[in-house]
Design a protein around this nucleic acid. Sequence first.
DNA 1: GTCTATACGGTGATAGAC
DNA 2: GTCTATCACCGTATAGAC
Lengths: 180, 180
Amino acid sequence: MDSVTRILNIAEVRMRRVGYNAVSFRDIAAEMGIKSASLHYHFPKKENLGAALVQRYSENFMALLNTRTDSITDPAEKIAAFTRIYRDSLGENQMICLCAMLGAENSSLPDGVSTEVRAAIADQINWLARQYQAIGQADPVAAAQTMIALLQGAMIQSGLYGNADPFRAAEKQIASSLNC
Amino acid sequence: MDSVTRILNIAEVRMRRVGYNAVSFRDIAAEMGIKSASLHYHFPKKENLGAALVQRYSENFMALLNTRTDSITDPAEKIAAFTRIYRDSLGENQMICLCAMLGAENSSLPDGVSTEVRAAIADQINWLARQYQAIGQADPVAAAQTMIALLQGAMIQSGLYGNADPFRAAEKQIASSLNC
DNA sequence: GTCTATACGGTGATAGAC
DNA sequence: GTCTATCACCGTATAGAC
């Protein structure tokens, strides 16, 4: 595995746990067993690392989303698959998704990172809105926004309590609203 | 207005905008026109300031909540009043509520602050759960958790876009679900 | 690619004068 | 209560050797 990938992997775990501001080059380097100066060879500035991380995160997310929903035709089922990715992403450690964490931190992020966060969320909303439109939702974009808000808020709550109960409660509500 | 109040006022605005970690004693002191050393007279450690801020925030919230809902008997109306406080709190500047911001940052917060955040959210959930129980919700706590998650997630989205559309979309969904 | 060495500002915090 | 002065640290970032 190449250095860039290893850096991004470590940065992802840490940033999802404590946020962008609380992660340092020194921490990441220490975990890799190298020096922080070496990180600057791959990512000149922290902003570059943050932007690249969000970009990779978003690409992986959309790719996984497409893979998992390619064979599904029912829009409601597609939406359910979307929430399942969020659940899997929460994992056993109640790791908040990157977009929720950096979304909260948004106004203290460097421009380059903030831009990528907005782009990543826009992709998700567009995808969701398309499904809601297929279902015949009156305001598909609003429905998509609300759904993202609920999932991200539920992740934060789950992180706060150290268990996935709040997230599961949110999932149930989504499931029941789709059966209406 | 006494110094402690002024400090807390400034800290609240800043922490709701950029989070706990991105706020410094120096920033607050500069805005007050004093030196950071003076802040330590009122709050020996940053953790003390954070904890006191969340405590005050929660007390004010619950007090306002009770004032606004005292004369309301219908539980669904009470819940609507709850969401209205969140909306007012979002304000014109899309200022994320303190609990959502610190909730996201939770795992990088000092214990004293983290504890207060959990206590504050627990109060809100208890209050909401009581209303949902009065309505006859099957799982009142889950409903309360989901509602808090949605409101907080919607605030983050609104902060991200710089407008209140995501929050309004969430409000609408809550309103319609209460009329079911 | 990674190292050592280093610069330099920011940060929480303390001691002691006023 | 607020000041000055100072501390020890941590943060990003750079230069140049290997």
